[in-house]
């Protein structure tokens, strides 16, 4: 669980109009370059996060099984996880939690190994080829540490984004879900309460997380690594002994000792 007083952002999908004001504000405040992209037939652009796109809206449209059309928007950016896989996988301590639970990368110590890029379940951290280090959302640490809101939150025209203390926003999110469920969204839920020890960015969704392309089963990197070591230990023991047995046995047979 994040600390009750940690910084947090609440994204409310039921209020979002998909206008990308947050996305543009992020680029402007953080001085991130525009990208050359191609029209891929959807509204999302750029299609995925990169070293110079830390926040990008994603769009999902289609027909529900009952024939109702849907058109959903969701924020794509770092979730500032409490048990962050990027932090766990970083070999230099460059990727770390700062005061207030925010995850940022220290660009003067990052060696550009890209472990964090592979570790993030939200594809939120990326390699900057020019600088040789990784880049990601900082929750506008330079702003919030000075009492301001993140640029994306400030720019949002519909109150779909709120910035505040974790405890307050968590309560707000749960209240909002109650309202939505009463209004005829039975699948409304808060995403990010349980994921990776609780994320500092919470989502209010009107539908199942998979409908928004959010990974449902995320696991801590430490647990995955432990599983890997366990598997490796068993593999080494079994194969080592198996080989020894086969080779020795065959040798013995040959020698006629059976």
């Amino acid at each position: 669980m994040p600390n009750p007083n940690d910084f947090a952002i609440l994204f409310d999908a039921s209020r979002c109009i998909g206008c990308k004001a947050c996305q543009v504000a992020c680029k402007q405040w953080n001085d991130l370059e525009a990208e050359h992209t191609r029209n891929a037939g959807g509204y999302a652009n750029p299609p995925k996060l990169t070293a110079s796109t830390w926040l990008a809206m994603r769009y999902y449209e289609g027909l529900r099984p009952d024939g109702e059309p849907y058109f959903d928007f969701v924020r794509g950016a770092c979730m500032h996880c409490t048990h962050a896989p990027c932090v766990a996988s970083c070999p230099t301590g460059a990727m770390a939690h700062r005061e207030g639970g925010v995850v940022t990368v220290d660009q003067s110590t990052c060696i550009g190994c890209r472990s964090c890029v592979r570790a993030c379940p939200y594809d939120a951290v990326h390699f900057d080829e020019e600088r040789g280090v990784v880049q990601k959302c900082t929750m506008c640490y330079d702003r919030i540490a000075n009492g301001d809101q993140p640029a994306c939150v400030k720019a949002c025209p519909t109150d779909a984004l709120t910035f505040g203390r974790y405890q307050e926003l968590q309560a707000l999110a749960q209240e909002r879900v109650r309202v939505l469920q009463a209004r005829g969204y039975p699948r409304a839920s808060v995403y990010g309460l349980k994921e990776l020890g609780g994320t500092h960015v919470l989502y209010v969704l009107t539908d199942h997380p998979s409908q928004y392309g959010l990974p449902a089963a995320v696991r801590e990197a430490e647990k995955r690594a432990m599983g890997g070591w366990l598997s490796a230990g068993i593999a080494a023991a079994v194969m080592g002994m198996g080989l020894k047995f086969i080779v020795d046995r065959r040798e013995a047979f040959k020698g006629g000792r059976g």
Binding site: P91, T92, A221
Partner: peptide
């Protein structure tokens, strides 16, 4: 930095 940067046993790379 891999060696002198600190102790990070949760990092498989480390």
């Amino acid at each position: 930095n891999l060696i002198l940067g600190g102790v990070y046993p949760s990092s498989v790379m480390w």
